[in-house]
Design a binder for these strands. Sequence first.
DNA 1: CTTGACCTTCCTGTAACTAGAAACTTTACC
DNA 2: GGTAAAGTTTCTAGTTACAGGAAGGTCAAG
Lengths: 133, 133
Amino acid sequence: MNISEVAERAGLPPKTIRHYEEIGLVRPLRAENGYRQFCDSDLHKLAFLGRARSLGFSLDDCRSLLELYEDHGRASADVKALAGHHLTEIDRKIEELIAMRRTLAHLVDCCAGDGRPDCPILDNLAAVPVLKP
Amino acid sequence: MNISEVAERAGLPPKTIRHYEEIGLVRPLRAENGYRQFCDSDLHKLAFLGRARSLGFSLDDCRSLLELYEDHGRASADVKALAGHHLTEIDRKIEELIAMRRTLAHLVDCCAGDGRPDCPILDNLAAVPVLKP
DNA sequence: CTTGACCTTCCTGTAACTAGAAACTTTACC
DNA sequence: GGTAAAGTTTCTAGTTACAGGAAGGTCAAG
């Protein structure tokens, strides 16, 4: 398979696949003309990566997951731990965004949104306490 | 004020403040020795920026907010629109994270997390449908 | 006078790509 | 067979919002 076919089938852009090769996540063979030649195993790896990325795993995590996937002597505890940490991190981000959302939604609600300059949003941003010297 | 004092009082690291100067968000004067000299207005701008950043606004948005803040003839509608777009974006991110969280939490729940290799998490990642040629 | 705390600029690195340029190969069509 | 389009390669640079660190100037205290 050439890169565009494997890209289509794995659901990833060719640019992304070249990037993954550059950082050693996949190692396709090369044809005589220099074109990358992907086998079924490469395709599955790429699909695996795409799926892991869609769950928000970093590429570093993806590398570890791929190693675990290919290590048939792995302990599922290792996978669970990695996924658990990621889950915790996702929860943290959600909390952070929800806090932002709460404040911001309130401010937007309070703003008249007309032609006048008075604006509770700007007032709030400007009302940050500044430490005295 | 020198940079470390304004940093302390605005609640931002000096590196961040230098960066903000570099991209033109603040324009402190310079003393004869080359040191940056911040006035109260600079301090308030920086605190404003810190607050806006903490609500997740991009630096580009911060620049616009700062311009609106300083434009006494502004229409609050413009501020509300900017904040509204940001709110929508935050909502989008929250939804995305919650979807990830749902899938991931389920998988982590299903995984025994022991010494055996069987792992529903990896199974799920590997079970991505691959398009046929 | 020296030491240590500040300050300066400049360069590099981060994450995960994306865009685009210049050059090669292959494929399709006439 | 010629040529033009499509596909491929490598390379560089840009994105976001800084952080880390090096080399060197400055200032206040003892």
